[in-house]
Design a protein around this nucleic acid. Sequence first.
DNA 1: AGGGTTGTGTAGCAGTCGCTACATCGCCAA
DNA 2: TTGGCGATGTAGCGACTGCTACACAACCCT
Lengths: 190, 190
Amino acid sequence: MSSVSRRDELLDLVTDHVLEHGLIGLTLRPVAAAIGTSDRMLLYHFGSRDDLVTAVVTRTEERAIAAVDALPPADGVRAGVNRLWEAYQRDPMHGCLDVYVQAAATGLIGQEPYRSAVLEANERWVRALRDYLVRCGAPADRVGRIVMLVDSSLFGFQLDLATDRPGELARGVDDLAAAAQALGSETMRS
Amino acid sequence: MSSVSRRDELLDLVTDHVLEHGLIGLTLRPVAAAIGTSDRMLLYHFGSRDDLVTAVVTRTEERAIAAVDALPPADGVRAGVNRLWEAYQRDPMHGCLDVYVQAAATGLIGQEPYRSAVLEANERWVRALRDYLVRCGAPADRVGRIVMLVDSSLFGFQLDLATDRPGELARGVDDLAAAAQALGSETMRS
DNA sequence: AGGGTTGTGTAGCAGTCGCTACATCGCCAA
DNA sequence: TTGGCGATGTAGCGACTGCTACACAACCCT
């Protein structure tokens, strides 16, 4: 049936619009007008604004994960983290992660549907990150610990991207990358 | 004159309300009713909603900085970062940083006044963090690099606080703390 | 004593919000 | 042919938004 594909088509258009204009403050009529439809149709295909938001968050996350999956592995964890950071700053990942951060910030105070959407998205995201770092040579028995450090920290750098100069951030990221590398190769102290 | 103090009084009340109900989606009438005044009065004292938001962001940041300044220094950078993280999870810092993250996420797409407010707040915040780490024994010539790593990363952990279990995050934070400590004590490799 | 500033209440403006009722198309199956 | 069903347009609902006009009371300065 055509309704499913039409919904998918609309979802991609809405997602593109959100990537440019932000998730926070998204309202139906402007986005509908921008993509050549009406709020009436968005409600018809998605049920409610909340369901639309959830779908957009999921779609951006799918794109981001696809970008990570397509990233050629680097030689070692340190190089891998740095390559990851380069990808964070380029499209399509940059915009997708911005959307994720906006959703996570909104969900911080427990606001639905953001909180649940981010919770599920984060789970899949961590899995993609882990797979990538394994491909870069991270030892399987420590990759969980590495990902915990790298994932959280890189989101922080992503947040600071709006306030700090990218050059200085890059040095911080490399320090993080070196620490992640050490987590994988050194003997654990504690 | 009393108008300044009345404004200040209102600002504290609004800030308390924002700490509970979030900055994103803040509207005048509900917050005014909750603190026993009217939207009319908020506009009178703050000029516009945007100016109110800016003032709230600045006030929460002042509270957070005061909490950092009041934090007893730890012995060494690693212990300092861990103590910082403990403070992040307690009030008053926890709520304040949530508000900061919400403002930063909104400012990510260049939306004013969030972007400018966060930009200025971040500058003062980094200064407070650096002072604290110096008090913990961070070497003065490397504390800038340490703060760059710690500040960004801890914001990431703050974001993940909504999705991950605090216990697992704590291990990640300690890994970060160890890396920060190493940055201050080891011979730089690059 | 009286004029101006400052704070506050009442009422309302124009605009936007998510959402819905209703009518209407075109299509495929019986 | 016709009847039902998916898709769409029109119009509008009640609620809410930031903000403002106007009146009034209390105070300080002269």
